[in-house]
Design a binder for these strands. Structure first.
Length: 598
RNA sequence: GGGGUUGUAGUUCAGUCGGUUAGAACGCCGGCCUGUCACGCCGGAGGCCGCGGGUUCGAGUCCCGUCAACCCCGCCA
């Protein structure tokens, strides 16, 4: 082992133009090809790879060091850049025209046998193994590429928002628990026995207060925490690009958001994002069955009025207040087997839809399958059906029909491979319902959050509980490829209006004061009209990196049960620590910690 | 909270109908090879078959439980 020199280049830098130069490279051994009299080491760093060639031109001492090299050893190589012979050029390698003949090789560090392969074409290890040795997983070029993209995303964001006059301001991580919304992560207070902080689910209230403070335009790249069950695109801690604008209209916020998207996609991928279409929530649900529609393909839905149908499954659904929607799969009659249709039925049952009615369109409006039993006149309500098409119909409660058919639309699109690769279909979804009925809690709850401004023309409905479901809000989501990647709203800036909304949500004056008193106070001191949006930075990174897995864009992610397999968090703590915090553990200590799982 | 998939060498996997000594590839260790780039060739080491019970003469294989990872529903203002 020896002291280190300063490198002259990264491993991906060298080209034919560098031939003849003396260079110093430092990195990891990516591959070893020992041919006896000649040996090739490929050295890798963040920038790429370079072949180090050793043959009779090499000093015996250098040769002896090189012979010790193993995969992932850390080397420092000083040598001369040589052009490869005509037959030895590797077109698949960025630096494939050259090789470095070393005059000195220093072995900076060795490695234990690796838990999984980092270079080469070996199959990928399971995520469990990779997460346990995340520092090695991150060494893989595939993941390094994702973090380069993520870095560019941060930088483009700051450049863009700074350019639009936004101030970057940090808000507290240790915060007050707000009972609405997701479950909080709690932190006990040592100084205030029995009192707890909550980690922020978002900086929502603070950013509104910054508007009251006159900051005018605020943004922050911030961590948010929600203690809910996880998914492929959800982590317990995640990053938002949080923004708020004073004197904002819905259109202005969307304009700034669109501008940010355009800048980021251009700077990170060189991709030009065109005009972003706008759908209302109702339109999105009606045509796609989802408030985050994937606009990369068709298979749109049609709501039909089949209340006159005497077909029992339809009748029953309609009588129970349900709706009937249809989806046409062009040319789907021929290649959709009975087994596949059964699979679709099973698929939609996950979304609590009772089942599916199908029919294969024949000549002259005829139809085989269960839909053949529906009156031809009613079937004619479904537009664009031609011979050879598959028609799928769902009937039931609107929520379940939308969800089942909406997810089935995406499932079938993937299955039939009709989603164009490498495209980004952005869409704004606006005018969400302000409130939704919580069946379990038997009460109305805010769909976005309780500070969202209802549209002016619906304010008069706030005092009419049976019509709360009709109230639309000045809220908007930004969606890309069927994924919600941001959302926000115009906020209520008038304390009277805020009180009316709290009251509509069944909160008494006292309860509202207890939960959100400082916001209500602030609204009485000259709060400007304001609104904003929070962008899901991790999901943006997923889209930019082309991955379906949020763990691929988070350096040290957690598993679906919110543990860190490398750090082994969460862990138990000393009873002394708990005592200081006035916290008692009510979970019985296991006889032996972690007896299971090697 | 519920449903599904998976768990065998360091890694990725195979393992038939329940049968005697659990295999392969890559990696690791040793040797050979002067233009490789998924280098090649020869040899070697390496296994609590996730864990615990049960059935059986006999369990990697069948049954029950449990743990973990992943995907989904609920949940995620």
């Amino acid at each position: 082992m020896s002291s280190i020199a300063l490198r002259t280049h990264h491993c991906g830098d060298l080209r034919a133009e560098h031939v003849g130069q003396t260079v110093i490279l430092q990195g990891w051994v990516h591959s070893v090809r020992d041919r006896g009299g000649v040996m090739f080491l490929v050295l890798r760093d963040r920038g790429g790879t370079t072949q180090i060639t050793l043959d009779e031109r090499i000093d015996a001492e250098v040769w002896a060091v090189a012979r010790q090299a193993r995969l992932e050893y850390v080397l420092e190589v000083e040598g001369t850049v040589h052009a490869r012979g005509p037959g030895a050029i590797n077109a698949k390698m960025a630096t494939g025209e050259i090789e470095v003949l070393p005059s000195r090789i220093a072995l900076l560090n060795r490695t234990k046998p690796l838990p999984f392969a980092i270079g080469g074409a070996a199959t990928e290890a399971t995520e469990e193994v990779r997460l346990k040795h995340r520092y090695l997983d991150l060494r893989r070029p595939q993941l390094q590429r994702n973090f380069v993209l993520r870095h560019k995303l941060y930088q483009a964001t700051r450049r863009c928002l700074d350019g639009h006059g936004f101030l970057e301001v940090e808000t507290p991580i240790l915060n007050r628990s707000t009972p609405e919304g997701a479950r909080d992560y709690l932190v006990p207070s040592r100084v205030h026995p029995g009192h707890w902080y909550a980690l922020p689910q978002s900086p929502q209230i603070f950013k509104q207060l910054l508007m009251v403070s006159g900051f005018d335009r605020y943004f922050q790249v911030c961590k948010c925490f929600r203690d809910e069950d996880l998914r492929a695109d959800r982590q317990p801690e995640f990053t938002q690009i949080d923004m708020e604008i004073s004197f904002a209209t819905n259109e202005l916020v969307r304009e700034v958001g669109s501008s940010l998207i355009r800048d980021v996609w251009r700077e990170v991928l060189g991709h030009e994002v065109g005009e972003i279409p706008v759908l209302t929530y109702h339109e999105a649900m009606d045509r796609f069955g989802r408030d985050a529609p994937d606009m990369r393909f068709g298979l749109e839905h049609t709501t039909v009025d089949w209340s006159a149908s005497d077909f029992v499954p339809i009748q029953r659904a309609v009588e129970a207040g349900g709706i009937v929607k249809a989806m046409v799969i062009p040319g789907g009659a021929g290649d959709t087997s009975r087994k596949k249709l059964d699979g679709y039925t099973k698929f939609v049952k996950r979304y609590r839809l009772g089942g599916l009615l199908w029919g294969k369109a024949q000549a002259e409006g005829g139809m085989s399958g269960p839909l053949g039993k529906v009156d031809a006149g009613l079937r004619a309500q479904i537009p664009g059906v031609s011979e050879g098409d598959l028609v799928l119909v769902a009937a039931g409660p609107a929520k379940h029909v939308h969800a089942g058919l909406g997810r089935l639309r995406e499932h079938i699109a993937r299955e039939r491979d009709i989603i164009p690769a490498g495209t980004f279909a952005f869409v704004w979804v606006v005018n969400f319902p302000a409130f939704e009925y919580d069946e379990d809690g038997e009460r109305w709850v805010a769909m976005h959050h309780p500070f969202t401004k209802p549209v002016d023309e619906h304010l008069h409905l706030l005092e009419t509980p049976e019509r709360l479901g009709e109230v639309l809000s000045d809220a908007y989501d930004i969606v890309c490829n069927g994924s919600e990647i941001g959302g926000g709203s115009i906020r209520i800036h008038d304390d009277k209006e805020q009180s009316r909304v709290f009251s509509a949500l069944g909160l008494t004056e006292a309860e509202a004061r207890n939960k959100f008193g400082f916001l209500l106070d602030a609204l009485q001191y000259g709060a400007p009209p304001h609104g904003g949006i929070a962008m899901g930075l991790d999901r943006w990174a997923m889209l930019l990196a082309g991955t379906e897995n949020i763990r691929d864009v988070i350096a040290f992610p957690k598993t679906t049960s919110a543990s860190d397999l490398m750090a082994e968090a969460p862990n138990t703590v000393d009873s002394q620590q708990l005592a200081e915090l006035f916290v008692a553990n009510v979970v019985p200590e296991p006889a032996e910690e972690g007896t299971d799982s090697a």
